[in-house]
Amino acid sequence: MKLRLPMAVAISMGALTLVAYFIPIGPLAGLRLLLLTWAGALAAVALLVGIANLALVHLRHLSTFRGPWVYSLALLVAFVLMLGFGLLSLIPTGLQEFADIAAFSHTAFHFAFVFIQIPVEASLAALLVVIMVVAGARLLRARRNWSAVAFIVVSLILLLGFVTINLPLLNALPGLRSWIMQAPAAGAVRGLLLGIALGTITTGLRVIIGADRPYGE
């Protein structure tokens, strides 16, 4: 019973959703929508549970001074501040006593997002550029084969193909880049997408018929 009940629920819900997708009529469509709403709510709760778990883990680190507890302290402070600003900014505008607090919270929340989160993430992406360039320069030291040479040549063509330079040889690079992206790359991706689709269908059918039970033991 412990194993059969989850399996029966999963198989029945999966088959029902699949049938309702292809036959969206009457109660089937409503039932499918209901199931999807439940799933979305569960996903939102799962996100909250994940955030709470993250806060508890770092709170435990901070309480025992284990590991890099300074980082845990920074995370918890940022978490509390942003959560507080976010919640305070939701104060209805009708409450005049808290209108200033709500305005300040909204401004602070926007400021933290615009002037802290966006620059930090952009800086990390900029570091990725440097790492990628260095890795490309070192590629032949790590892999001494023709695949590495081809990789470097194609990457140079695509990289320089974005730029329009009025030089004799480099003028042809945008056209060559466009051909590579639309012919060989697109052809290879088509095969990749077909494989992914077949694999997804197979996995879904295995779950529906009970061959795979990711929800149980």
């Binding site: 360039v133 260095v134 490309g136 320069a137 070192r138 590629l139 032949l140 470097i152 990457s155 140079l156």
Partner: peptide
């Protein structure tokens, strides 16, 4: 970037 990669190669 392309020049650095080419020089490295």
């Amino acid at each position: 970037s392309g020049l650095i990669i080419a020089i490295g190669a």
